[in-house]
């Protein structure tokens, strides 16, 4: 077959893509949906960390990832990419940010360009699963605590000591058994 594989025409995204898009009901129809997502993508590029409803975050994230991937692959002299950036970024100074700041930041990365985290839900609310969507490498303090591996944490000290004691008892048992075997041998 001479037909090119579809998967090779577009750069593969580094996030999980659901099989169907979300309709994101809007009185203006599909165009309204796109306008909503453009606003979100613009906000994400502008503030680098935003909190919003999960549906919209997940949908906008896919377009943001795609936009950054295209910008990295084709650079700023590629007309279709520039048109795409012009369409998605409502504030035009962000187009400069995309090519001059974000492309150098992500050129050599091998993970996704954005990160999505669950945010606490407001009390007594329904159907509003909140999410934090951020660009990786942003200047804000990290949201999650990556220190669980710190050996100095109290729980780790306790567990390490318990492990050490368990091994010591096992070694003592083994040493006893060795002694016994040697004693038995001469008698046999």
């Amino acid at each position: 077959m001479n037909q090119a594989e579809v998967t090779k025409l577009v750069s593969k995204l580094r996030i999980k893509i659901p099989p169907k898009h979300r309709k994101m009901s809007s009185p203006e129809g599909p165009e309204g949906r796109m306008n909503k997502l453009r606003k979100t993508v613009t906000g994400l590029f502008k503030y680098e960390r935003i909190e919003l409803n999960h549906n919209r975050a997940d949908e906008a994230r896919q377009y943001a990832e795609r936009l950054i991937a295209e910008a990295i692959n084709h650079g700023d002299c590629h007309k279709p990419t520039m048109e795409m950036a012009d369409y998605w970024l409502l504030e035009k100074e962000l187009v400069h940010k995309l090519f001059k700041v974000l492309v150098p930041r992500y050129e050599n990365s091998n993970t996704a360009y954005t990160r999505m985290l669950r945010a606490p839900r407001p009390e007594y609310s329904y159907n509003t699963e909140k999410t934090v969507l951020e660009l990786r490498g942003n200047p804000y303090p990290p949201l999650h605590n990556k220190q669980a591996n710190n050996r100095q944490l109290l729980q780790n000290i306790l567990l390490d000591a318990a492990k050490y004691e368990y091994r010591q008892t096992k070694y003592a048992e083994m040493a006893e058994n060795i002694g016994k075997n040697e004693q038995e041998k001469p008698s046999v």
């Binding site: 605590n145 710190n150 100095q152 944490l153 109290l154």
Partner: peptide, 8 residues
């Protein structure tokens, strides 16, 4: 707090 880098 409990999660500082050196919590000794």
């Amino acid at each position: 707090n409990f999660t500082v880098s050196d919590p000794h």
